[in-house]
């Protein structure tokens, strides 16, 4: 029973880590109707930039002879992500207003390859061990007293995710910009007609998404070091989005938790009977089942198109 509990807790914690990536997708989709395939690369890029600012290995140190303290490094990285968001709007999105969603989606695939290449050129492909002081390893207290294995880093990630969701919910529901974001998501042209600046909104939402990517990059980077495989975590977010719904912030969290627990329980209890490594497969199967029953996901908006 204790082992089952451990499996469920580990699944929940892993799910939170997936949700951190899924949140970035939701934000952009919710506000602009674009499925941003580059979200995983955003997390990688943000992680690479942060490492460069705070370590003595990067070109920032080479240029100025000192590394930034972590808090300043995070702010500087956020600045980089805002610049990236501005460039994305200026060079990509501006030219694709009112295009079909598939065109916008394709442009984000191109963006993913481009950013990955730029990241490689700027920061190099080496593994960068990210240590910003987050706790690592299992909780000794729980392990020694209750023989319960819980990763400290993942507990921190859960707290961070909870705070993020609250902040984002307030931002979307209570602020003027949040309402403008939702208006743009509903209809680009209608939003333009009431005086909402599409360009500004896009820069804002891509910046916020860049911030979420930075948080995801920090958490995943602290777990395994900043490296290019980080861009593939986007694939982990896909089943989460299908399950939770592409437009729901709480959906990204709940979806992540269901996927996390589902895949861990499946791997541990069913895996040994079918040769193992069913985690990824199971997550997508679960998502597929949901697509059949509830295409909009648990919390997504049902789209009714009248012909």
């Amino acid at each position: 029973m204790l082992f089952f509990l451990e499996t469920v807790i580990s699944g929940l914690m892993a799910g939170v880590m997936y949700s951190l990536v899924a949140l970035g997708f939701v934000l952009i989709f919710k506000a602009s109707g674009i499925f941003n395939f580059a979200q995983g690369v955003f997390a990688l890029f943000a992680g690479l930039a942060l490492y460069d600012f705070i370590s003595e290995d990067g070109w920032f140190y080479d240029l100025f002879g000192f590394a930034l303290p972590v808090w300043l490094g995070i702010i500087a990285t956020m600045g980089v992500m805002v610049i990236v968001a501005w460039l994305v709007e200026r060079l990509v999105l501006r030219h694709l207003v009112n295009q079909e969603p598939i065109i916008l989606f394709m442009s984000t695939i191109g963006l993913a390859y481009f950013l990955e290449g730029v990241g490689d050129i700027l920061f190099g492909s080496d593994v960068k061990p990210l240590d910003i002081g987050l706790p690592q390893g299992a909780s000794d207290y729980l392990l020694d007293n209750y023989n319960l294995y819980v990763e400290k880093l993942e507990v921190v990630a859960a707290v961070v995710a909870a705070v993020l969701v609250i902040v984002l919910a307030i931002f979307f529901q209570k602020t003027r910009i949040g309402r403008a974001l939702r208006a743009v998501a509903d209809d680009h042209q209608a939003a333009l007609s009431v005086g909402i600046s599409l360009r500004t909104i896009w820069v804002i939402v891509w910046s916020v998404s860049g911030f979420v990517a930075l948080v995801a990059g920090i958490m995943w980077g602290s777990k395994s070091g900043i490296q290019f495989s980080l861009s593939l975590i986007a694939l982990k977010a896909l089943p989460v989005l299908i399950l939770g719904g592409f437009t729901s912030v709480p959906g990204a969290i709940i979806g992540g938790l269901i996927i996390g627990v589902g895949e861990k329980v499946a791997e541990v209890y069913a895996g040994p009977f079918v040769g193992g490594a069913i985690e990824n497969w199971f997550a997508y199967m679960l998502a597929l089942v949901f697509l059949l029953i509830r295409p909009q996901g648990l919390f997504g908006e049902k789209i009714i198109e009248r012909v």
Partner: peptide
């Protein structure tokens, strides 16, 4: 077995 790329292995190490 650990699937490519192996960023997440919690289930493996729980076993």
């Amino acid at each position: 077995a650990v699937d490519h790329p192996g960023q997440e292995q919690k289930a493996t190490w729980l076993q």
